[in-house]
C-alpha cells in the first residue's frame, strides 16, 4: 500500500504545480484582454486624470509581476482581492467597504453550481454507465443502435435547444417542473431539488453520450480477452460476464471520462444557467468579463482550473486503485 501512497502524493504535488503554472497563464491572459476597467466604468466621461486615479486606487498602475505576486499571495490565503465593480459601487454610494470581496461574491454562486453539478452527476453517471453496460451486452442490436443514436443526437444539439425542448415537454405542455430555477439562500432542499431538476436533466442529456460510449467501448474492448472466454466457458450468464468480469477491468478509462464530464459540469454550463436563470458561477463569470472585473475573472478561472485538475487527479488515483496489481503487490 505504501507504493500507492507515494504515487498519490506525487500526483498531488504535480497537480499543485500544474495549478501554479495555470495561475500564471490565467493572470497573463486576463491582463492581455483588450479594454480597461477604468475606461469601461467611466465611459464617455473618462478624463485622463480620473482614469489614472481609478487605476491607482485599484493598483492597476503597478508592474504585472508585482501584481501577480500580490494576487497569488492573497489567493494562497483564500483572499482573491476585491471585486472592482463592487468596490467602485461602494465608493460611489459611500456605503461601508468590505462587502465587495471576490470570495464573498463567488461563494454562494459556486455553491449553487456545485449543487447543480452534484444533482446532474447523481443522475447522469449511473444512467450512462448502466446504458453503456446494456449497450455492450446487446451490442449491434436495435437497442444498442437506438441508444447510440439518442445520446449522439443529444450531445450534438445545442444545449439551449435541448433546454427548450425539455421546457416545452416538461414545463409547458405537461407542467410538471418549473421552467425557471431561481434559487436563493435558505431554500428548503426539496424545493431546491425541484427547481434544479430541469437544468440537471438538460445537462444529463449533454454529458451522457461520452460516458455511455466509453463504458460500452471499454467493455467491448475486453470481450476478446482469454478470461472473458473462460467466464463464458464456465457457463456464466452474459450479464454477469459483463458486469462481473469485464467492467472491473474496464474501470480506468470510464473513470477518466466521467471526471472530464464532471469538470465540464462545473465549468461549462453558462448557457444552461442563462436559459433557466440559474444563479451559478457561469453567469457571474460572463458578467465579470463584460465589466472587465479582473479579480472576479481571475478567481473564476482559477476555480475552474482547480476543478479540472482535482477531478482528473481523483480519476487518476481511482484508476490506480482499480488495478489489483497496485492494490495487492506481490
Amino acid at each position: 500500500m505504501g507504493n500507492v501512497l507515494t504515487i498519490i502524493l506525487q500526483r498531488l504535488a504535480l497537480g499543485f504545480l500544474t495549478l501554479l503554472i495555470v495561475s500564471v497563464v490565467i493572470f497573463v491572459a486576463v491582463n492581455l484582454l483588450p479594454g480597461d476597467f477604468a475606461q469601461s466604468i467611466l465611459g464617455q466621461g473618462a478624463t485622463p486624470e480620473s482614469v489614472a486615479a481609478i487605476r491607482r486606487d485599484l493598483g492597476l498602475d503597478q508592474p504585472l509581476v508585482t501584481r501577480y505576486f500580490n494576487w497569488l499571495g492573497g489567493a494562497l490565503q483564500g483572499d482573491f482581492g476585491s471585486s472592482f465593480a463592487q468596490a467602485s459601487f461602494a465608493n460611489f454610494t459611500g456605503s461601508a467597504s468590505g462587502s465587495g470581496s471576490v470570495a464573498q461574491q463567488i461563494a454562494p454562486r459556486f455553491a449553487n453550481t456545485m449543487f447543480l453539478a452534484a444533482v446532474t452527476a447523481a443522475i447522469a453517471v449511473p444512467f450512462a454507465v448502466f446504458l453503456g453496460v446494456l449497450a455492450a451486452l446487446y451490442r449491434n442490436s436495435i437497442f444498442d443502435r437506438a441508444t447510440n443514436f439518442f445520446t449522439l443526437s443529444s450531445i450534438s444539439s445545442p444545449e439551449f435547444f435541448l433546454a427548450y425542448i425539455l421546457i416545452l415537454f416538461l414545463a409547458v405542455l405537461n407542467p410538471i417542473l418549473p421552467s425557471v430555477s431561481n434559487i436563493y439562500n435558505g431554500m428548503p432542499l426539496g424545493e431546491r431539488l425541484e427547481k434544479s431538476l430541469l437544468p440537471a436533466l438538460t445537462l444529463t442529456l449533454v454529458v451522457t453520450a461520452h460516458m455511455m460510449r466509453m463504458t460500452r467501448a471499454a467493455i467491448i474492448n475486453l470481450l476478446a480477452s482469454p478470461y472473458i472466454e473462460m467466464a463464458r466457458l464456465k457457463g456464466v450468464s452474459p450479464m454477469r460476464v459483463i458486469v462481473r468480469h469485464a467492467l472491473p477491468n474496464a474501470l480506468a478509462p470510464i473513470i477518466n471520462v466521467i471526471a472530464i464530464n464532471l469538470a465540464y459540469l462545473i465549468t461549462g454550463v453558462v448557457v444552461v444557467e442563462v436559459v433557466f436563470v440559474y444563479p451559478g458561477i457561469g453567469q457571474l463569470f460572463v458578467d465579470s468579463v463584460k465589466f472587465r472585473d479582473i479579480p472576479v475573472v481571475q478567481a473564476c478561472c482559477l476555480i475552474f482550473a482547480a476543478a479540472y485538475i482535482l477531478l482528473n487527479l481523483t480519476a487518476d488515483i481511482m484508476s490506480i486503485l482499480s488495478n489489483p496489481r497496485l492494490r495487492h503487490p506481490k
Binding site: 482469454p226 478470461y227 473462460m230 462481473r244 472491473p248 477491468n249 489489483p324 496489481r325
Partner: peptide, 16 residues
C-alpha cells in the same frame, strides 16, 4: 463440461 486454457495467467480474471 469444463475448460482449462493454455495461458492460466491470461485466463484468470486479474480483478478477482
Amino acid at each position: 463440461i469444463a475448460y482449462v486454457a493454455q495461458s492460466a495467467a491470461a485466463s484468470f480474471n486479474p480483478a478477482h
